[in-house]
Nucleic acid binder design. Structure first.
Lengths: 248, 248
DNA sequence: TTCCTTTTATGTTTTAAAACACAAAGTTAC
DNA sequence: GTAACTTTGTGTTTTAAAACATAAAAGGAA
C-alpha cells in the first residue's frame, strides 16, 4: 500500500512531508480532537500515517473491498459513488480537503458499500482503522466527532433520496449545481464553480443521462442562469437556481 | 407530553408497566449496554423513561421540530418518512420493536429531517437526549452502539438511493416486499407478511404512485409470485422476487 | 501536424411511469 | 342499515426522460 516514492526519498524529506500533512490536518475540523492526544498517542499516529497520491480518475477503493483505513483527503477532490444497474453510476458524496472518509463500512462491520475515486490529482493520508478504534476508546471527543459526522451524512443521504426521486430533471440539476457551489465554493470571481467536472459526472450526481445533463445545462445557459465554457461553470442567478431546485 | 392515563393510574401499576417495558428493552439488542450502568444511572433512566401510546397513523414527531428525545419502540410498527414535492411521500425507514429512533437529528445538531408516525397502534418510550448524551459520555459501549447504528443506517440509505433511482417499478416493488419480509418477518405460516399496509404506503416505500403499486402487485399475483387478500400479502416465490428486485 | 479517442452537443424516436378518470369494494360514522 | 368516505382496481391518455443516432469539438498520442 505504501507509495513507491516513500522508499526512494531520504528519510528527512519524508518526515517533513508527513509533518506538513499532519499540520494541515490539525489546523482543520478535528484540531481539538488531535490536540487532546498525549505525546505517546501522537507518536503512534505519526508512525502510522501514510500518504498516498492518486491520479485523476484513479480508484481509491472499490465497493466490496474490506475497509481497513480511515482516509483523509489532504489535497484534491474525491467522489464516492455506487455502480448501479446497467452501467449507471450514482455519485453519493463529494469529499473536499480536509475531510475524512471510508470509515462507515468499518464501523458498520461491513465491506465497502460504495467506491471512492479521485476527481483530480489528490493526496490522501491513511490511518489504520484499528488505531482509530483504539483512539475512540480513549477519547470521548473523537467518538462524538464520528457520531456527529455520521448523523449529518445520514440526514444528507435521506434528503438526497427525496431530491433524486421526486424532483424533475431541471430541479435535480439545479440542486446539483447548488450543492457543488456550497461544497467546493467559487473561484476569486465569486461566480465560477471551483470544480471542473465532466458532464457525465454531473449526470451521475443528479440521476440523469449525460445527454440530459448537457441539454438541461444548455437550457440554463439560454435562460441566463449560468454560463458555460467547457467545464467551467459560472453561476449567474443563484436565487433562481435555488427556486428551480425547490421545484420548477 | 406525558400520556393522560399516567396521571390516572395508581402509582403501583404505573411503575409495573415501566418496569415491564424496561425489562423488554434490556432483553434486546442493547442489553449489554444497559447492564453496565451502575445503580444510580439505572435510577436516572427509570425516572426519566416515559411511556406513550400512539394510535394507528398518529404522528409521533414531524419534520422541522426540535429533537429532544430518544424514542424506543416497545410495541407496534413505526414508519419514518419525508414529505416531498407535490404531496408525494417517501418512506425512509421502518422501525420494529425494540428499536431506537429519532436521535440522528439531535446528534447532528439539526431539527428533524423526517417525520415519524405509527403504522399500527404502538407503544413508545422516551428518554431525554440530554440524558442519553450524558450516558454516552460515561459509557464507551453506548457510544459504539450509536456509531454502529448510524453507520448501518447510512449504508442502507446509500443503497436505497440507487435502488429507488435506477430500478424499474417491478424491481422497486419486489425490493420493497423483500425488505418488508426481512424486517417484520412472516406469520406462523412462514409466507404471510407480518405487516398489513395500505397500497399507498407500499407505493411510498417504493417510489411510485398508488395505482402503479396496485397494478404491479396484481402483476405479481398473476405470475404466482405472491397472493393478495386485502392487505394480507403472502410471498410464494421469494427467489424469483429477489431476482426481479436485482433487475427484472 | 494528423489520426484517434473522448467529450459535448442536438435532433428524433421510444418507452416507462405519471396523470387522469371512473367503478367497485371495503370501512366508518351515524 | 344506510350514507359517506376511503381504498382498491383497471382502462386510457399524456408526458418526462431514456434510448438512439449522428455530428461537431476538444484533447491526446504518435
Amino acid at each position: 500500500m505504501r507509495t513507491a516514492w516513500r522508499a526512494l526519498l531520504p528519510e528527512k524529506i519524508r518526515e517533513d512531508m508527513i509533518k506538513k500533512a499532519l499540520e494541515k490536518v490539525m489546523s482543520e475540523d478535528m484540531s481539538e480532537i488531535w490536540t487532546v492526544l498525549n505525546n505517546e498517542e501522537k507518536r503512534r499516529i505519526i508512525d502510522a500515517f501514510v500518504i498516498h497520491n492518486f491520479k485523476k480518475n484513479q480508484m481509491i477503493y472499490a465497493e466490496g473491498e474490506e475497509p481497513e483505513y480511515l482516509w483523509c483527503l489532504l489535497q484534491g477532490k474525491v467522489k464516492k459513488f455506487k455502480d448501479g444497474v446497467g452501467g449507471r453510476v450514482q455519485i453519493l458524496r463529494l469529499i473536499r480537503s480536509v475531510q475524512y472518509f471510508g470509515y462507515r463500512a468499518y464501523f458498520a462491520n461491513e465491506r465497502y458499500n460504495s467506491s471512492a475515486a479521485a476527481f483530480e490529482p489528490s493526496t490522501v493520508g491513511t490511518l489504520p482503522m484499528t488505531l482509530v478504534k483504539d483512539m475512540i476508546n480513549n477519547n470521548r471527543k473523537l467518538a462524538w466527532f464520528f457520531i456527529h459526522e455520521l448523523s449529518r451524512n445520514l440526514g444528507g443521504s435521506d434528503t438526497k433520496i427525496v431530491n433524486l426521486t421526486q424532483k424533475h430533471i431541471r430541479g435535480r440539476l439545479a440542486e446539483a449545481l447548488i450543492v457543488l457551489s456550497d461544497h467546493y465554493g467559487f473561484e476569486d470571481d465569486n461566480m465560477t464553480l471551483k470544480i471542473y467536472m465532466a458532464r457525465e459526472d454531473l449526470a451521475n450526481l443528479s440521476n440523469m443521462t449525460t445527454s440530459n445533463a448537457i441539454r438541461t445545462l444548455s437550457g440554463f445557459v439560454s435562460e441566463k442562469l449560468i454560463t458555460v465554457d467547457g467545464r467551467r461553470i459560472r453561476i449567474l442567478d443563484e436565487p433562481q437556481l435555488r427556486k428551480i431546485s425547490k421545484y420548477g
